[in-house]
Design a protein around this nucleic acid. Sequence first.
DNA 1: GATGAATGAGTTTTCATTCAT
DNA 2: GATGAATGAAAACTCATTCAT
Lengths: 206, 206, 206, 206
Amino acid sequence: MLKKTLSRREREKLRQRRDMLAASLELFSEKGYHNVSMQEIAERAEFALGTLYKFFKNKEDLYKTIIAEQADRFHEVLTNAMEEGDDEIEKLRNFVRTKGTMFINDVSVVRLYFAETQGASFNIKAGLDKQILENIEQDLQQLARIFESGIEKKRFRKIAEPYYLAVSLNSLTDAFLLLWLEAPERHPYPENPDVILDILCKGLLE
Amino acid sequence: MLKKTLSRREREKLRQRRDMLAASLELFSEKGYHNVSMQEIAERAEFALGTLYKFFKNKEDLYKTIIAEQADRFHEVLTNAMEEGDDEIEKLRNFVRTKGTMFINDVSVVRLYFAETQGASFNIKAGLDKQILENIEQDLQQLARIFESGIEKKRFRKIAEPYYLAVSLNSLTDAFLLLWLEAPERHPYPENPDVILDILCKGLLE
Amino acid sequence: MLKKTLSRREREKLRQRRDMLAASLELFSEKGYHNVSMQEIAERAEFALGTLYKFFKNKEDLYKTIIAEQADRFHEVLTNAMEEGDDEIEKLRNFVRTKGTMFINDVSVVRLYFAETQGASFNIKAGLDKQILENIEQDLQQLARIFESGIEKKRFRKIAEPYYLAVSLNSLTDAFLLLWLEAPERHPYPENPDVILDILCKGLLE
Amino acid sequence: MLKKTLSRREREKLRQRRDMLAASLELFSEKGYHNVSMQEIAERAEFALGTLYKFFKNKEDLYKTIIAEQADRFHEVLTNAMEEGDDEIEKLRNFVRTKGTMFINDVSVVRLYFAETQGASFNIKAGLDKQILENIEQDLQQLARIFESGIEKKRFRKIAEPYYLAVSLNSLTDAFLLLWLEAPERHPYPENPDVILDILCKGLLE
DNA sequence: GATGAATGAGTTTTCATTCAT
DNA sequence: GATGAATGAAAACTCATTCAT
């Protein structure tokens, strides 16, 4: 879809939609799905309540749209990050670094990300969309293939199945992000991705 | 307090309380705090609505009681597990094994555990009690001391600060528990704790 | 009813009943009918909830019993007061003095008295009993007869119908009692009944 | 604020508010605060429950608004009445006449007035607003000044302190209003204010 | 097309009353 | 006969959603 083909009207609509989603994201992230009212969202976004319903058919739809859009953006950036880099280690470094950067620049999203991926999504009526779960799965698969490739090239020892290695690295980055979220000063997300990677790479035992 | 000293009345009360907490735990775990009504809980527990309020002063109190009781049980068992074992590796094995066993025997709790610890607790008005956060922190500290001791004894390489190693191992077990929760058949929680521990211990790089 | 004919059991019952009524009177007077629960009354009276219901068939019955008993006591004392005294003025003095003394000794009752007689009784489902209204009416009639007699004997000028004079004197004492209730220090109920009576007797105009 | 400056929307809002207050006044007056539900008020006013809550933040707010508005109106009218008239007697006549007229035209208000001023306000959680008590006190003070002025000019005998004379006259009008309220046919509120005033003015004793 | 007032179902909570022990 | 635990009807209040303007 070329931008040039969008009429002023259409561009305006997109801008409104973006504003609504931004306001909702903030509020949901601050207070949680059930502690935010549609009225509140409308006010924060500076639109009328009815206008909100012109864009999203109900509260759940609005919420899911946010999650879906963020997940897509997230997915795209991560996919690209994992493709860049000359060797496997470099790709893993890119994964760790990019995931950190992305989240730290967008605190609101982190909270929702954890709420959703770590099993609290049952707080909202319906679980995550198939689409989103697939995104996440794809990221893990892509990460797994990096590990697999490393193992094939004898660069990595096969200390676990590639998929589990992917899950592990993902959970390590999550853990560091949570620490940062709770106490940004005391537990900054490491600038050097090796701090996290080494936990996986170096082997604890002498 | 010896059971024998409890009157029939008192024992009956305890049983009722337990039934109520059990019903609530199930429902909160299935549907989330905000999607469960007190009426629903009363029905599931087979008590009248008013009786529920005789035992818990309001919905939040009921919820927090569940979380607190489970967190205490959890904390106690884990603390003990980490104390047993002759050397550091054995203690870590006990941690991984016990955490798995405990959760797998009580699926309802896992869901709430993740909802609460992974940042979704903001879905309920008040966050986690100080007490519970302290429990969790204590577990991590205890785990960290095991790593520290291993490093001092030159059994472990210091691939990261002990506290971060503790956080890492904890997040790895969480990740495997989540996998199991999503697809118990495909991703059983490993009976042999080394499957998880090795990810930390063996070192990926050749 | 001779006291001697009452068995110990019966005397005990009467004492319990009195205790219950006393506790209820206190509470109703402090907080108003709707802001007092039967549970609360039972606790204050140090009886079990069920026992309360053995004595009074429901909350309204309990309330009405209090009102009726106090009204009876009130009526009896006032009737006697108005009978004593050698002339009309003395009888009126006795009325004013006795009404004051009685209320001031029993603050709880005053509040209920005003709540009931001044038209707030509609706050409770049913209005005042016929019996009580009749009591009040009788008092007014008796007072009216005193005025009437005074007029016949040419001691009083007929500045209004005797009944309205009765109502007037009654309302004057009520007004002074209300003042005292609001600010006992600033507006003590006059020890000398003439302070009130004079307002009626002396005539404002020169 | 000129009516012309109100938009149709605003006028509509005012009308709705008035309708709600009118329905509430009726119901509270008929049955008392605690025997009226918000649902009932909504039905009587022919609005949805939620609409009621758009206008008044809760039941107590609704009640207090009624009381406050009526008290203000009452206060204003009485103040003016007491200012008109050439001499003291005329001012007192105006007070007695106006108070009667106002109440007789608005029976619902009388009931609430008595419920509130005669000490039953403790039936509702919060007592009367400071503002309202001040209104009442101001009226009494103004009345007292009239008596004082009359005494200074030697038109009145000082049969009691001016403030107590004010309280007395006020209580006399209240008494006649209560009589009328109970039996309008038998005890009409006197058209000629002297019927009430004479009780104070003429002096009972020969 | 935008608006936001109006709606009412659904939720939490209280408390008078009953009745098994 | 006393007890007080259990009951559930009823009340206050919220908020997602609709629809007339």
